[in-house]
Design a protein around this nucleic acid. Structure first.
Length: 589
RNA sequence: GGCCCCGUAGCUCAGUGGAUAGAGCAUCUGCCUUCUAAGCAGAUGGUCACACGUUCGAAUCGUGUCGGGGUCACCA
């Protein structure tokens, strides 16, 4: 919904009429006028100088004059150097505001008809989720909402890395030290319960390695010969051989993990339409690779391993099948990608995966292209930066991993203590308070993560709590709640004509009119940060307006009507924008 | 070493070729007897890592240098 299209057309026509230069209307760049100048939108005339053969001032004056004569909505203009600042008539803006409120165009985007399958989260099932997963999940969920809001048909899926040596390590440790304990008997969340045995494994390994090293063995050798490691390897072989006892233990422990994960997903507010299990697909890619080998896309080395040569694409040779014929990581991804296409026939297959796998996804896409898979072109790696601590990467062995559940606990606690320390009096029941602390704490966390450009790394300092004031999620929630509060006190609307907006009111309308385009941009760039920055700007402008404009006690009915439209539309956009970020908007706070 | 990403205020971040580079946090000053002070107004704070180039114009594009991170496994 581009409200400025008529103006762009008028400028385009003006340029053609004055200088015989054809610029399509939708290529007319048109930027909001900076606050220190008069006007709402600015057109830069420098690119026209060659055609106009006049200086910037004269060119801008001419074009401005043309607009004034040919475009009814233009009230006046001013020229500063090569900048043509255009002021529109008040009723141009108030009619846009009226349309925004009544039509809410962001709710009915043009249908793109594109089907997107978006995979995110992708956890291993041997330990609980951490802050890295949180960034992944928040990005994945928010992007899916944004793509849907931009008119795409979106399907959220998860992939579980539910097999392999890692889970076997937890299983071995559990066999040795578990004493048939369960999450229920110990009162432990399932994923943490299993994660505990992963730590137990590390401790057992350290002990045994120390013992072996005391006997004169090198560290590398000891790590390969430690009984607990050999047991884990044997466990993996038994799993692959389909040993019933091993499979049963595996299933039981994974079941506990899923139960724990589901609690975290629900609490964080994310969901999945379909789960893919690596254990069900890890061998399927092999057929595709062998088919590719037959057709000569790949080659076999003397030891029997299968490779793809990507040196012509500036990459390396990559192994696709081990010499013993078993699958490697990328082989599984080929299998899962194929299965996903059978399931969905999607146009775009997006993967939310950290940027440490940039290379992997380049290879995956090229391999699928070589295989002639119809969906290869639609592979999109949504690569995001990792979450770092002040001292660097999170390391589970050093216990510096920020646990997802702990972090959510802390955020709730900090929003609780914030509200308890304020002198705010809200007649909330205990249950309502609990809900509010959860909503506000999560909002702070989610906004903190989502407001930064996905491709940039995030620095998280565990000793400093995430802010609740300023450029934060709660700030936007608060603005929304204020608006709801005002509107709830409104007995009736005057209806009819709106007063001419003043500067603050105009700023709000201009910003509101850009929401639809902001969603399109965020969708094209796969960036929730663009939504976050937009709603922050909008909330800030509203609070500025709110500070010295009364809605309920406006001077005239026309003024009141204008402000009601403003409050209403701003509330709707803030609520919608928060929803795109996966953030709940409490009616009161 | 090859390839990829990043470098903007003390800190965390915006800024997709346009005007005198903006926010929040932190520090300091004001504003609750009027719709919620998780707010508003103001002050302080910049060699946009550095150099050269492209052009009317560069934080933004190109090349190079420096610094940080990632990756280049028959690990996942």
């Amino acid at each position: 919904m581009n409200y400025l299209q008529p103006i762009q057309e008028a400028i385009s026509n003006g340029i053609a009429a004055l200088y015989q230069l054809e610029i399509p209307a939708d290529e007319i760049r048109f930027d909001p006028t900076p606050p220190e100048f008069e006007g709402e939108y600015t057109y830069v005339v420098f690119p026209l100088l060659k055609a106009s053969k006049k200086n910037p001032m004269q060119t801008a004056e001419e074009l401005g004059q043309y607009l004034l004569e040919h475009q009814n909505s233009v009230a006046r203009f001013n020229v500063v150097k090569g900048f043509l600042n255009i002021s529109f008539k008040s009723d141009f803006w108030t009619s846009i505001l009226y349309q925004l409120r009544t039509e809410q165009p962001w709710l009915s985007p043009a249908r793109s008809g594109k089907k997107i399958v978006l995979e995110y989260c992708g956890p291993n099932t041997n330990k609980p989720l951490h802050l890295g997963h949180i960034r992944n999940m928040l990005l994945g969920y928010s992007i899916s909402k944004i793509q849907a809001a931009a008119g795409n048909d979106v399907h959220r899926v998860n992939i579980y890395n539910d097999r392999g040596i890692a889970i076997c390590k937890s299983m071995v440790a559990y066999q040795r030290k578990g004493n048939n304990a369960t999450p229920t008997t110990t009162g432990t969340k399932g994923d943490h319960f299993v994660g505990h045995y992963y730590v137990t494994y590390s401790n057992l390994l350290d002990e045994e390695v120390r013992t072996l090293m005391a006997g004169g063995m090198s560290k590398e050798e000891a790590e390969k010969k430690a009984p607990v490691y050999l047991e884990a390897v044997r466990m993996l072989q038994q799993w692959e051989a389909g040993d019933p006892g091993t499979l049963e233990l595996w299933q039981t422990m994974n079941g506990w993990v899923y139960e724990g994960f589901n609690q975290t997903f629900e609490r964080l507010g994310v969901d999945f339409e379909k789960d893919y299990l690596e254990s069900e697909h890890f061998s399927k890619g092999r057929d595709l690779v062998l088919k590719g080998l037959e057709k000569g896309y790949f080659f076999r080395k003397d030891d029997g391993s299968v490779w793809v040569d990507l040196t012509d694409k500036g990459l390396d040779e990559k192994v696709l099948l081990r010499s013993d014929g078993t699958s490697v990581y990328i082989t599984q991804d080929i299998g899962v990608a194929h299965q996903r296409y059978l399931d969905y026939h999607m146009d775009v297959s997006a993967y939310v995966v950290a940027n440490e796998q940039d290379y992997h996804f380049k290879v995956l896409k090229l391999v699928l292209e070589k295989l002639g898979e119809p969906y290869a072109d639609g592979i999109h790696h949504l690569s995001y930066g990792m979450v770092d601590l002040p001292e660097g990467k999170m390391k589970s062995r050093e216990g510096t991993v920020v646990d997802a559940d702990d972090l959510m606990d802390e955020m709730e606690a900090s929003s609780r203590s914030f509200l308890e320390q304020s002198d705010k009096q809200l007649d909330f029941s205990e249950a309502e308070k609990t809900t509010l602390y959860r909503q506000v704490g999560l909002a702070a966390l989610k906004y903190f993560i989502l407001r930064v450009d996905p491709k940039k790394r995030i620095l998280f300092n565990p000793t400093e709590s995430i802010d609740l004031q300023g450029n934060t999620g709660p700030f936007i929630q608060y603005t929304y709640a204020r608006i709801k509060s005002v509107l709830s006190k409104l007995s009736d609307e005057p209806g009819g004509k709106m007063a001419a907006p003043d500067k603050d009111e105009l700023d709000l309308i201009v910003t509101l009119s850009r929401y639809y385009a902001t969603i399109q941009d965020a969708s094209e760039n796969w960036s929730p940060a663009e939504i976050a920055n937009y709603i922050y700007t909008l909330a800030r402008q509203f609070n500025k307006f709110y500070a010295d404009h009364s809605v309920l006690h406006a001077d005239t009915p026309e003024q009141k009507q204008l402000r009601i439209h403003l409050a209403h539309t701003t509330g709707a956009v803030l609520g919608h924008g928060l929803d795109l970020l996966g953030i709940e908007a409490p009616e009161r706070m």
